[in-house]
């Protein structure tokens, strides 16, 4: 049996009391998918969480209580989800804006706590592992990075022709 929540438009959220579940509709032009994931994750201890995309620009979140839930309890879930969603969305923005400071503190905290590696730890370190992602190709060989130019050189063009292409090729 589908029921409205008092004070909440039906198109935004409603309850299915027979199934102890509530559905919310989220405007995905306002809230990023990462925020929806973040808010959803905080509910998986109490609810089964289902996501769907009923239409372009919309996400549907279904919170099905693990234990039988009353309408008031379901309304509480919906309200808490909305608050958590807002917190996640804003946190995502703030974290991006303050990323420099947060990373600096984190690096200092961990480096201060860990100290330098011992000789034994260095000996055990696997230097053959990929050290980091390299989107700009800094660690790539010349040939790997400018394979097209290498192909041109094979066709007999002079070394000056092997100069890197303008930035858009790397982008």
């Amino acid at each position: 049996m589908t029921q409205r929540f008092a004070g909440v438009p039906d198109v935004l959220a409603h309850a299915d009391l027979d199934d102890s579940s509530a559905e919310l509709t989220v405007d995905s032009t306002l809230y990023s998918l990462e925020s929806v994931y973040g808010a959803s994750f905080t509910f998986i201890d109490r609810c089964f969480v289902f996501l769907d995309r009923p239409a372009e620009g919309q996400l549907r979140v279904t919170l099905a209580a693990k234990k039988s839930a009353t309408q008031d309890e379901l309304r509480g879930f919906v309200g808490e989800f909305a608050n958590e969603l807002l917190a996640c969305a804003w946190r995502e923005k703030i974290t991006a804006e303050n990323r420099g400071a947060i990373e600096a503190v984190t690096m200092q905290a961990l480096a201060g706590a860990m100290g330098p590696p011992s000789l034994d730890e260095l000996e055990d370190f696997d230097f053959s592992e990929e050290p980091f992602e390299d989107p700009l190709g800094i660690a790539m060989s010349w040939e790997e990075k400018y394979g097209k130019d290498k192909a041109k050189r094979k066709q007999g063009e002079g070394p000056e022709a092997a100069a890197p292409e303008p930035a858009e090729e790397e982008a």
Binding site: A87, R91, I94, T95, I102, V105, T106, L110
Partner: peptide, 14 residues
């Protein structure tokens, strides 16, 4: 530890 250090900085909180 990395996660709680990140989460423990209030400049990342609404």
């Amino acid at each position: 530890v990395r996660a709680v250090v990140l989460a423990g900085q209030l400049d990342g909180h609404p």
